[in-house]
Design a protein around this nucleic acid. Sequence first.
RNA 1: GCGCCCGUAGCUCAAUUGGAUAGAGCAACAGCCUUCUAAGCUGUAGGUUAGUGGUUCGAUUCCACUCGGGCGUACCA
Length: 542
Amino acid sequence: MKKYLHEIFNQASEKLAYLKDIKITFDIPKNESQGDLSSNAALLLSKQLKKPPRVIAEEIQSSLNIDKNKISKIEIAGPGFINFYFTPEFVSEIVKEILSNLIGYGKSQKYRGKKANVEFVSANPTGPLTVGHGRNAVVGDTLANLLEWVGYDVDREYYFNNAGRQMRVLGDSVKQRYLELLGNKIDFPEDYYQGEYIIEIAKKLHKDFGNKLFDENPEGIFKAKAEQEIFLEIKNTLERLGIIHKVFFNENSLYEDKKIDEVLAEFKEKNLSYEKDSAVWLKLSQLGNEQDKVIVKATGEPTYRLPDIAYHVTKYKRNYDLMVDIFGSDHNATYPDVLAGLRALGYDDSKVKVLIHQFVTITENGEVVKMSTRKANYITLDQLIDDVGADVVRYFFNMRGITSHMNFDLVLAKKQSDENPVFYLQYAHARISSIIRMVENENLKPSTENLNLLITNEEQALLKKLHQFENEVLLSAELFETHRICVYLEELAAAFHKFYTFCRIIGSEKKLAEARLALAIATRAVIKNGLTILGVSAPEKM
RNA sequence: GCGCCCGUAGCUCAAUUGGAUAGAGCAACAGCCUUCUAAGCUGUAGGUUAGUGGUUCGAUUCCACUCGGGCGUACCA
């Protein structure tokens, strides 16, 4: 419907040149009595043309060459909105479009030929993924799906560091537990990893090696085994959510491949770094940021900024048109430095899109549960999946905007899992599937011959909702907002459930039944496609 | 102190990116199953959009300040 309006506005702009001065958009009014689509063009042009908006609206209206088979009415309303009403026949055409495509319906080619990288999760292998990581994981993967739907070739990437202090502590935590298993009395430090999983890893080593590892360095087999086991578990958890990364990028490789040195040399060459107090500083104050920051410590070890910059350089060298980074809000202070560094090296930092999601507050019976991997005071993502299922986890993290400080009550989540909106969508899908099974015995086939019979309020409302899908996918991808898909699907499912209640298929007059069946099948396709983007299953039965 | 994010119905959150009368789910109340799945539908109730000012035809949305919360503010990542 929007497409058609854009067409006739384009034609009209040949006569009314000022239409080219503004971005023409069409909104869906909240109130049905304000038409199917509405333009605010006249209001936007009022100042520039020094004419009352309603006068301009009339000018625009009279210059539009409309097809009466598609548009039934145009009216000027309120302060100067132009409201368009479509004919039921035109509205029902969408069914043909959907049925001719089904599983591919909603995809667009707008970004075909472009490569995107989505980096997400990126937790270091020091412990199991927590509920907190869940939001990052789900949003990242869903975003990757969305980008694929609008044509991008997407790589999912996981960046991690298995060197450094944290990992040393991890290795020694395992060693201490191992020594404990050998019967030694240990004094397990408070700032070591307290989790049960450390003991499990120690047990495996004990089983395989007995007491032979007594003199081993904690940074050797203890650390290596811990990393291996924990990564296995992380990947396993992600896979339960349907998430598979194509690339696991190890920060260490940046050192081995001399990427760090190269970037360092380039900063020096461009006179963007200097030495002070035996550390190397990056002149961020010259690059538009607050203050200079250390990139190599006095110890000779780089701070995270340097490898982060070098890492992004490798992404540029891998020719991505779009690089999405998904971080929790605890990283919100770090990325401006990285972007500034990239800019200084001559890279176009507008290709990097950093998405910061707010933390999930976990509560249990209203009490806030504080999470810390170190203290082993956390709910693992695995436990959550066990409790509510992968579909609910995915839907839950997708359904809210990433800027919301989401609240997650564990008790409520379990108790209300039956009433979670995800079931509402899945139920709609299952209901349609059930009808399709049923009509096989009724000698009824879907047909698009008589779609013009779909004229009731419920049918028209459902059809109009279907019209929005393609655009909604595109918009969600361009705005990097996965929750829009959830909001849309809930509206679509509501429109379907109403249709289901008031418009029977089996038992209706044959031509009408065929048209309604076609509409139901089209609806099922869109629900399924939407759920696919979200990574949620679309059951045939419930 | 400074920076980023947030504050919307009892609770969890939307709001077409500045649009017309701020909407859903849950919870509450009242109805609807001999007919395609009642995990559904219909209706009622629930609001000074934290507050004050500003910008304009029009503000939940943009700006300033105040209050309240989260995360940062490292030669930790």
